[in-house]
Design a protein around this nucleic acid. Structure first.
Lengths: 177, 177
DNA sequence: GTCTATAATTTGATAGAC
DNA sequence: GTCTATCAAATTATAGAC
């Protein structure tokens, strides 16, 4: 699963094979199929684990600070980590792009990742805006924040330059002050 | 090229074949190779044409209105069109995600798309901010706007719901007022 | 859990006839 | 410009031995 995750985050779900993973492990591809009968199940398992790991990190943030601005900053740094790793981006970002050409079970786990992220952000923006704020406005901001982070990653990947990510995120973080 | 573009925007560069296109045209894959010797050259040609078409649309916007806010609104609607088409997203968005698993010549054209977009947006944000504004701030805003549009597309694709795009873009457009 | 062996299909690409 | 024919490689997946 570690290797599958690395391959997906580098080249996408459709550009790695059971043989790639088997070769890295020094075993045969049939042995990989023993653990994950289909590629869809492998993709779903990897995406699920990725999401769970991410949710744990979100819980850590919530525990570390109560300030909404600090939480959003830490949240953005979580995304930043994903591209600082060489030749890597958010697993669910690339799988969302490939959504229409990957097995449904894998796409479903990707969807779950974003649902949970937006859920968490809703809470943060609620704290930031106060209890009298408009629900739709909060919903919009949660979407916008995920969007700018994922989009910033795409730019950073295309330009092969992390600064494109930083530039993308800066105006949003700045507007919080 | 029309068919290639449709396939890429639907399933990604790595999930269509010369045979797919040939079958749609009722010819053989060897005949497609006559026009585009390699898949990389096909991808680069499609991305280049896509970029040129997009730049023409930007010129149209510049001609239609001088108001920076109106220009940004029209710009965002250009992106929106790309997902309103069923099972479709921005060609360069999906190719940016696949950047590390597609031929370099195709990735280069993708990069060009974003460079030109940001170039155009720089001008708009310059008009919006006034000539005394900070260069870096303008550069950041241009990046952020492309990022939120591309990221909004990823969300819309994952949720199979255009409203995820609309929600992502709303706060940005709202902040312009 | 890993292996050998293999099926069945798809892929990008080329040679050469028409 | 399109065809037939084909190559060489890669892919997901399975059957059955150890």
């Amino acid at each position: 699963m570690d290797l599958a995750e690395r391959y997906i985050r580098q080249k996408g779900f459709n550009s790695f094979s059971f043989r790639d993973i088997a070769a890295d492990l020094g075993i045969k591809s049939a042995s990989v199929h023993y653990h994950f009968p289909t590629k869809g199940m492998l993709g779903a398992a990897v995406a699920k684990r990725y999401t769970e790991r991410f949710l744990t990190a979100l819980a850590d943030i919530s525990e570390r600070t109560r300030d909404p601005r600090d939480r959003l900053l830490l949240y953005s740094q979580l995304y930043r980590q994903a591209i600082v790793t060489p030749d890597s981006m958010c697993l669910c970002g690339i799988m969302a792009a490939e959504a229409l050409s990957i097995p449904e079970e894998a796409a479903a786990e990707t969807r779950e990742f974003f649902t949970r992220n937006i859920e968490w952000l809703r809470g943060v923006f609620r704290d930031l805006s106060g209890s009298d704020a408009d629900d739709r406005e909060i919903e919009d901001k949660a979407h916008a924040f995920v969007a700018v982070l994922e989009g910033g990653m795409l730019l950073a990947r295309s330009f092969e330059d992390v600064r494109a990510f930083d530039r993308s995120v800066e105006p949003f973080l700045h507007s919080l002050k």
